[in-house]
């Protein structure tokens, strides 16, 4: 019987090895390990054996069974692996073919810049204030220390609608309105972005419509050094940690003292180049301490309250930052222009 078992084992293992597909393997399994298979038969015939041989043969039969079963399982696993391998091979695609395009759009460059600037100042505790684009003369001029007859408010420079109403020439009227809403109390801490209009013929450097973003802080102890600190923080975040700022005297009717802020030129690092016209500095914005007449007209006591204001042109900043040579690009909406600024 022992020989029979060894024979069966050899025979079965050979068939397992020869089995080419799952069916053949299953056949081998049924043939040798099935209830009617030869090993079962051997076990059944064990009754005829002497008592002491039974456990030996029983053990051996089980071992053979185990061995065949393991071989079948292994073979089965191998076959499955091969099948999967084949499937994977068949499913292989050319990953270098282009993907199905997802729609992508994006904000206008000026919106991106304005939002970026808003966020910088929000981080410093500012709120965003907005106001009408068709403005009354009082808020656009008078409340900003530009009384009637002032040369800077020539009819020729503004789009008037009636004698008392015009397209706002700057976002400063929002400052006047915001101060008025605060009824003589501080702090007023706002950023005012928006569209403005001037009587200019559109060309590479002029646009009859453009954007401005202004800031205002009025409180009891606002100093010019605070203006410097805030603008410095802004400039470093906006233009880079290594940029320096400087203030130069200037003139605006609604601030006194008035200054212009330059940043050190990024192109040459302050050495002087064509971008900064050899000065090493680039003018970025106008600013100053709020004029006492402006405070007073808005209901603030200039002896108690001081404030600073600043204003800049996103178009100019964009032109500097990206080397854009024509302001009309911002309003032509050529997709080849717009798309360039949709990248993160």
């Amino acid at each position: 019987m022992q020989e029979r078992l060894v024979e069966l084992k050899t025979e079965a293992l050979e068939k397992v090895a020869q089995a080419e597909d799952a069916k053949a393997l299953q056949d081998v399994k049924v043939q040798y390990l099935g209830k009617k298979g030869p090993i079962t038969e051997v076990l059944r015939g064990m009754g005829k054996l002497p008592k002491e041989e039974r456990p030996v043969i029983g053990q051996m039969a089980n071992d053979v069974r185990e061995e065949i079963s393991t071989a079948i399982d292994e073979k089965q696993t191998k076959m499955e692996e091969a099948a999967l391998e084949k499937q994977l091979q068949e499913e292989t695609i050319d990953v270098t073919l282009p993907g199905r395009p997802a729609q992508t759009g994006g904000p206008h460059l000026l919106t991106s810049l304005i939002e970026e600037i808003e966020d910088l100042f929000i981080g410093m505790g500012f709120e965003i204030a907005e106001g009408p684009e068709v403005e009354v003369d009082y808020y656009n001029f008078e409340a900003l220390n530009l009384p009637k007859g002032h040369p800077a408010r020539d009819m020729q420079d503004s789009f008037y609608i009636t004698e008392e109403m015009l397209m706002r020439t700057h976002t400063s009227p929002v400052q006047a309105r915001t101060m008025e809403q605060h009824k003589g109390k501080g702090p007023v801490k706002v950023i005012c972005p928006g569209k403005v209009y001037r009587r200019d013929t559109d060309d590479a450097t002029h646009s009859h419509q453009f954007t401005q973003i202004e800031g205002l802080l009025v409180d009891k102890h606002v100093r010019m050094s605070d203006l410097k600190g805030v603008l410095n923080a802004f400039a470093k975040q906006m233009f880079g940690e290594e940029r320096e700022i400087r203030l130069r005297p200037s003139f605006f009717p609604f601030t006194e003292p008035s200054v212009e802020m330059d940043i050190s030129c990024k192109m040459c690092g302050g050495e002087g180049c064509s971008v900064c016209k050899g000065t090493g500095w680039i003018e970025i914005l106008g600013a100053g301490m709020v004029h006492p007449n402006v405070l007073e007209m808005a209901g603030y006591d200039p002896n108690e309250y001081t404030g600073f204001a600043f204003g800049m042109g996103p178009e100019r900043i964009a032109m500097l930052k990206y080397g854009i040579d024509d302001i009309r690009h911002f309003y032509t909406n050529d997709v080849r222009f717009l798309n360039q600024f949709h990248k993160a």
């Binding site: 929000i122 505790g125 802080l217 605070d226 410097k228 600190g229 005297p249």
Partner: peptide, 16 residues
């Protein structure tokens, strides 16, 4: 103006 220091506004802050 270069000799004016850099400071940050004091006083009651807004949340912004």
């Amino acid at each position: 103006y270069d000799n004016i220091p850099f400071t940050m506004p004091q006083g009651a802050g807004n949340a912004g």
